[in-house]
Simulated assay, not measured.
Amino acid sequence: MRFSATALLALPLLAAAAESPYEQYKAKFQSFLSNFGVAGPAADKASAPATPSISTGKAKKKVTEPKPIHTLTLDNWKDTLYAPVKAEATQPEEWLVLVSGRNKTCYSHCLRIEAAFNESATKFAAMPQSPSLGYVNCDDQPVLCNSWSAGTGNLWIFEMLPAPAPVDIHYKRLNLTTVTSQDIVDAYTGRPDIQWRKFEGYFHPIDGFFAKYGLSVPLGYFFWALGAIPSWAMMLVVSFMTRTMMNRRMGDANRQGNAGGGAAPRAAPPGDGRS
């Protein structure tokens, strides 16, 4: 098939004539939609203006990481407490230690204070000056708790200075049923208004008599073993010891009685003859 030059030149005109009715109706339709406040479709997506970002006016809140809580054991407790203490320090490095337990030592009453102590780690992290945090579980570390003579449900504050300087220790009993994380923070920051008792005596973990002479850990094992003995076994031991002592006393009394039974009876004093 052959096309003449005239037909080729007429093709653009025919295309324009075909598009002009469509463009005419399209313009009328967009004008009709604009009367109702509706914008027509964009002719070119690339030419459409970018959607501006909407600012809510609220800055993202910075999340405070909680302070680490160090678990103290019989093997690491002293090294852990002395770790942040500098050799030339003159101000004590403070530690706040929770003494807790589970079924054996706290009868499942320490769950609340452990949760409150964990929550207080975030509040302590937000403070400009706060203590290092430690945790002792007497179910897991019975020898350590016995060597300290430490009861569950207590907060301990260690004021650490470079060895061999004396270390002051204060402790406070917590309310196991109502304590909150804010109570723990207030107890620490409210000293000395809030009652704390100073730990003194033979069982002081660092300066006590037993600690200085290396007896605290052996005593810890002794008291732990003593507490591990069932009550019925202890009653049997006490009963056996009591009977043994009573048998010895009875045997001594019988021997004394037998020794005195062979002596001649004393004569009665003579009468004066009066009836």
Rank of each mutant, 00 (worst) to 15 (best):
residue 33 L to F: 02
residue 201 G to R: 03
residue 238 V to R: 09
residue 19 E to T: 06
residue 90 T to L: 06
residue 46 A to F: 10
residue 246 M to I: 12
residue 239 S to W: 03
residue 194 I to L: 14
residue 219 L to Q: 08
residue 56 T to S: 12
residue 165 A to F: 01
residue 217 V to A: 01
residue 268 A to K: 12
residue 217 V to G: 00
residue 181 S to L: 03
residue 173 R to H: 14
residue 243 R to P: 00
residue 242 T to V: 13
residue 233 A to R: 15
residue 133 L to G: 04
residue 151 G to H: 10
residue 77 W to N: 06
residue 46 A to M: 05
residue 236 L to R: 15
residue 74 L to T: 09
residue 51 T to E: 08
residue 252 D to I: 07
residue 79 D to P: 02
residue 89 A to N: 05
residue 230 P to A: 12
residue 99 V to M: 14
residue 241 M to E: 07
residue 7 A to H: 12
residue 77 W to Y: 13
residue 58 K to I: 12
residue 18 A to T: 13
residue 108 S to H: 09
residue 55 S to Y: 03
residue 28 K to I: 04
residue 66 P to W: 10
residue 64 T to V: 13
residue 238 V to N: 11
residue 246 M to P: 00
residue 7 A to D: 15
residue 43 A to C: 06
residue 268 A to H: 00
residue 71 T to R: 00
residue 58 K to G: 00
residue 266 R to P: 05
residue 163 A to G: 09
residue 54 I to Y: 07
residue 199 F to W: 04
residue 231 S to F: 02
residue 239 S to N: 09
residue 182 Q to E: 13
residue 163 A to D: 11
residue 31 S to F: 00
residue 4 S to R: 15
residue 245 M to E: 08
residue 78 K to H: 06
residue 126 A to L: 01
residue 250 M to V: 10
residue 90 T to A: 12
residue 222 F to G: 08
residue 260 G to D: 11
residue 167 V to I: 15
residue 28 K to N: 02
residue 40 G to Q: 00
residue 139 D to H: 08
residue 115 A to F: 13
residue 190 G to W: 01
residue 236 L to G: 10
residue 159 E to C: 12
residue 129 Q to F: 03
residue 180 T to I: 07
residue 270 P to F: 09
residue 150 A to N: 07
residue 207 D to P: 01
residue 123 K to D: 05
residue 6 T to V: 15
residue 259 A to W: 03
residue 119 E to Q: 15
residue 166 P to R: 03
residue 181 S to A: 15
residue 124 F to H: 09
residue 75 D to I: 04
residue 59 A to Y: 02
residue 197 R to C: 02
residue 139 D to I: 01
residue 63 V to S: 05
residue 274 R to N: 14
residue 19 E to V: 08
residue 73 T to Y: 04
residue 239 S to V: 13
residue 244 T to P: 01
residue 14 L to I: 15
residue 233 A to D: 01
residue 165 A to W: 01
residue 16 A to I: 07
residue 122 T to P: 00
residue 172 K to Y: 10
residue 64 T to H: 13
